[in-house]
Amino acid sequence: MHEMSIAINIIDLATDFAQKENAHVIERIQLDVGTLSGVLIDSLSFCFDAASKNTIVENAELVINAIPAKGNCTDCNNHFDVEQWPSPCPQCGGYFITVSSGKELKVKSITIN
């Protein structure tokens, strides 16, 4: 259940930035979460609600942009959507795939008041 640690990291990061801006309330947090990041979005939302109680993040809306995974085949240079890891290259069947997107786990922005 690493989503709890992830949620606490998000709250700490958002709070640090909000305090630098002298904000008292965080209205919204925008996240990029790749489908191969190893984070379960439902579980993250649940942990976020629990961990944000009694902080300036409480009641903040968590907006999660799920970033689809894309792979690059190192054998035939094909660029393709990865539904699930591992997946063979749909063009040549090879497994030497580098992930070009889908591992993101990032706080994009916060909306403060």
């Binding site: 990291n9 998000i10 904000a23 786990l105 990032k106 922005s109 403060i112």
Partner: peptide, 18 residues
């Protein structure tokens, strides 16, 4: 006026501290 919302760009990895 309650419409003072400001968007702060962060673009920081969630695990950047770790």
């Amino acid at each position: 006026d309650h419409n003072q919302d400001r968007i702060i760009n962060i673009e920081r990895d969630v695990l950047s501290k770790n």
